[in-house]
Design a protein around this nucleic acid. Structure first.
Lengths: 345, 345
DNA sequence: CCGTCAATTGTTATCGATACCATCGGACAG
DNA sequence: CTGTCCGATGGTATCGATAACAATTGACGG
């Protein structure tokens, strides 16, 4: 920067001001500086700037996996909201493991983000402590923790599945099973299963049948394997809810291969409203939480929280409950039922 | 850090050394310092460290979109390779736009990454200049540019489709069409189309029929729309190659809906070997470039290049050509043909 | 023509860690 | 017992920008 200043015949401070664009510099000076910058191919060093201004200009986002389209949609939503204010997003993946999450939190905090958005409300004790003591806004998403760390933008995974169950029952299904990954650290998947079991009880359904297959996140292939095991275990089954649209997709494809008509022989529903759910044949009944919108809301809230923090007054904890929608499609359309507005082709 | 030093009764310098673990500190001192660190809940500030040591400890990766599973696999591969050496990955998305890529390059360079991995070999002039002058290792991936900036880890998009065409022809298909996005900035999609056209000529096929639909990246839905237009435009068509597996998937689902048997009425192939390609019914013939392995190789090369750069001698430009594989599956299996080892169920 | 004020620019200290070199204390050979 | 050397630790300068304050300039009213 000193070189630029010399070439433009001004002081480094003026160069700094010119590059921030905040006016306060004569148009001619501005132009002279910008020319010097481009002549020298100079690029501002923001990390040095961050050190002195104590504003790093980025926010960390922790998600379980990049390969899950709903999480990447959430990240996109967050990015959209933050880009407008020139806040950068630093992504970290935890691989559905709390231990890894703890490690990633530490790495992230070493870079001094101005805020951090995590997926889920369950963390290791040390991870939680680090988040609490970081002195920056924290947003937990994709869940509604009972004792949140700071802000929350989420929904109840259990409630989404309860609603879906109610809808299936309303459509006439009585023998409904559930497919998920083995008990592990995927607390969101676990919550959905809890919702399933509560619904079976509440609705007085015949019996709960849960097929567990592989460790989360379960793949398309495992969804296919699970449906075979299900038909073997409980031949009278009429419908099944899969823990995600991806596994529901795998189940449907396996049914095609085996000649089991969907939904006539077996109705299949998923979770998440992935892009493929809408276009699979038959299209997949699912629960949408609007992952991208969720991300956008989290991003907007983060902007507000960061601004408040810069201003010296931390924002009081917010709790935003994202509404979910059961989207009925062709994969659960077999039994006689009234016409419904909510059905999407 | 000064607080920690005081509590442990040593100097800041010793704390710094203890935290880097590089020996050179008495075990007792080490332990005393670590206890002080955890008592105070102190977290190292790496950006300050980066300023003085000139080692930021991260690498930037630019991809067109997070929502494309092949790119996120590449990122995973890169992350796997770099994590081992405690290098962090900073992801930026360019939305298939060169102008946006230029902006993202600038933002990234402001954080002084120790290396940068970009997707494709085509950039704006300024973007290219910035990359050349950044003084750090650059890796271009997913392409084989004729005049690379520095290192290359990629493959020829045109060649992959030429090979796929040859295989389809060998299987007896003669009237083969191509579905892609409108001419835009997706140079990799464009290269694939060029490969298609060259193959039509070289193989002496009947005629080239290209359906263009929407701006890249084309969606599942657009794949479905395109196949309808194709059947309308060229009813004699026997097979079609889609620019990606996602659009191929959309095309297949649309065929199911309309009662066009795949592959009997229309054979369909894709590109990229996405997870869904293997599990769709019928499974989708595609070209695999091993996106994750590509990422891993790029990551490994980057480690080597960064190490060389730290040592003072930049690594001489490497050019790694990733082999591709045509994977024949059920979606192109109709015509009589010999048994083939390469076929995957 | 002078004083006041606002706009613009410059100077200095500082952010938090690490590189580099100096220092100190003890082990060991002669 | 003494000189040498090595391992552990401390002191100081520095990385590249920006905050905070100081200084300069010119405009304008009286």
């Amino acid at each position: 920067m000193a070189d630029v200043a010399r070439l433009a015949g001004v002081s480094a401070m003026t160069v700094s001001r010119a590059l921030k664009g905040k006016g306060a510099v004569t148009p001619q000076t501005q132009e002279r500086i910008l020319r010097a910058v481009s002549d020298l191919g100079y690029v501002l060093d923001k990390s040095a700037g961050a050190l002195s201004s104590k504003k790093t200009g980025f926010v960390s986002v922790l998600i379980p996996s990049l390969n899950n389209s709903t999480f990447s949609e959430t990240v996109q939503g967050i990015t959209e909201a933050l880009d407008t204010e020139a806040m950068q997003v630093l992504i970290g993946t935890t691989g559905y493991s709390r231990a890894r999450e703890e490690a990633v939190i530490e790495t992230m905090l070493q870079r001094r983000p101005e805020g951090i958005i995590v997926t889920g409300g369950t963390h290791t004790p040390r991870g939680r402590t680090m988040l609490e003591q970081a002195g920056i806004p924290v947003i937990e998403t994709w869940d509604l923790p009972a004792a949140p760390i700071d802000h929350v933008v989420g929904f109840s995974n259990a409630a989404t599945i309860e609603d879906l169950m109610a809808r299936l029952m309303f459509r006439g299904y009585r023998r409904i099973a559930f497919i998920e990954g083995e008990h592990g650290e995927d607390t969101r998947g676990h919550d959905r299963r809890a919702g399933y079991e509560r619904a079976v009880e509440a609705l007085g359904l015949e019996r709960a049948c849960v097929i567990e297959v592989g460790r989360p996140p379960i793949t398309i292939e495992q969804g296919g394997g699970a449906v075979v095991r299900l038909m073997d275990t409980w031949p009278e089954v009429e419908a099944v809810i899969c823990v995600s649209d991806l596994s529901a997709f795998g189940a449907i494809m396996e049914c095609h291969r085996r000649g089991w008509a969907v939904p006539e022989r077996l109705a299949i529903a998923g979770f998440g409203d992935f892009e493929i759910a809408r276009h699979t044949w038959p299209s997949i009944t699912t629960v949408s939480v609007g992952s991208r919108g969720l991300g956008r809301q989290a991003g907007t809230l983060m902007l507000e929280a960061v601004a408040a923090m810069r201003g010296g007054t931390p924002l009081a904890p917010r709790r935003i409950n994202i509404p979910h929608t059961v989207i009925e499609r062709d994969s659960t359309a077999s039994l006689p039922r009234p016409a419904v507005a909510g059905r999407v082709a």
